[in-house]
């Protein structure tokens, strides 16, 4: 950061009053914060995953109709949730980046994409493992499966475009346009595919009605979902820190960081 910019940044909080939301929009200030946050999410992720796996494999009873194979949902459902939430988060950071012109927002969305793609892939994979004993087929052309597959393509398209452009500024912005157009299109794709063909069961858990599953199963699933959240946050922070160092490698603060860690 140049001297006048620094002076401006120091002056800003007083002139705005209240909390300065933009303080951590700079890689220089966000880098140490992210470093502190990683263990705060990483260790709970591990603990929650262990508790969740214990609940889902040893405590939760065998399902009356589906037998043991239903236990896949403890991974499948959190993965499917995360795949959609991360896409929204990605589109959100892209919008923030385009509106406020903050570099860090684009780095956030690029850090989110691989994790989102991973969850999408896990959701599809575990879904196939569950579908074979339950429906008798690894894959059916059903609304949810198909839209999840298209979500995976959207993630891959975003990552491929960002990787194909050498100039980081253009890569950021072009990727943001793709992510936002995709975000508008996701509901359209979802409903088009839903009307096209459907077999997947309706949602078993919703906020408005009582859950249609035993409470211990629900507890296991929610703990696993929290573990997935914590894991995603921790991993994304690790990745965004790496991106920050790579992008800002020519700046003073990275040089100082390298100097002090020697």
């Amino acid at each position: 950061m140049t001297a006048p910019a620094k002076a401006l940044a120091e002056k800003l909080p007083e002139s705005r009053g209240g909390i300065n939301w933009f303080k951590y929009a700079s890689p220089q200030t966000f880098y140490p914060l992210a470093g502190k946050l990683i263990p705060l999410f990483g260790w709970p992720a591990l603990a929650l995953a262990l508790v969740g796996l214990y609940l889902s494999f040893f405590v939760a009873p065998t399902d009356a109709t589906q037998g043991e194979s239903y236990r896949i949902i403890f991974i499948h459902v959190p993965a499917a949730w995360m795949s959609m939430i991360i896409y929204l988060a990605m589109a959100f950071w892209c919008a923030v980046g385009l509106i406020f012109n903050t570099r860090l927002s684009f780095m956030m969305s690029q850090a989110l994409a691989p994790t989102g793609a991973m969850w999408t892939f896990i959701a599809l994979w575990t879904g196939a493992l569950w579908g074979k004993p339950t429906w008798g087929a690894w894959w059916v052309w059903d609304a949810r499966l198909t839209s999840e597959l298209i979500l995976l393509f959207l993630y891959l398209g975003y990552m491929a475009l960002v990787a194909a452009i050498d100039d980081p500024r253009r890569a950021d912005r072009a990727g943001a346009v793709v992510a936002l157009v995709g975000a508008i299109n996701v509901p359209i794709i979802y409903f088009s595919v839903k009307w096209w063909n459907t077999l997947h069961q309706g949602a078993s858990v919703s906020v408005t009605s009582a859950p249609k599953m035993a409470s211990i199963m629900l507890a296991g699933m929610l703990v696993m979902a929290l573990a997935a959240w914590a894991y995603s946050v921790a991993v994304v922070l690790v990745r965004v820190r790496a991106l920050m160092l790579e992008r800002e490698r020519n700046t003073d603060w990275v040089a100082q960081l390298v100097e002090s860690s020697r």
Binding site: I150, F153, L154, L156, G157, A160, L161, A164, V178, V181, G182, N185, I188, I189, S192, V193, W195, W196
Partner: peptide, 19 residues
Amino acid sequence: LLALLILPLYVPVLIFGAG
């Protein structure tokens, strides 16, 4: 790259058109 980017966006048009 173009194919990877826009073919997913074409899905609704394809479904309703062929449908």
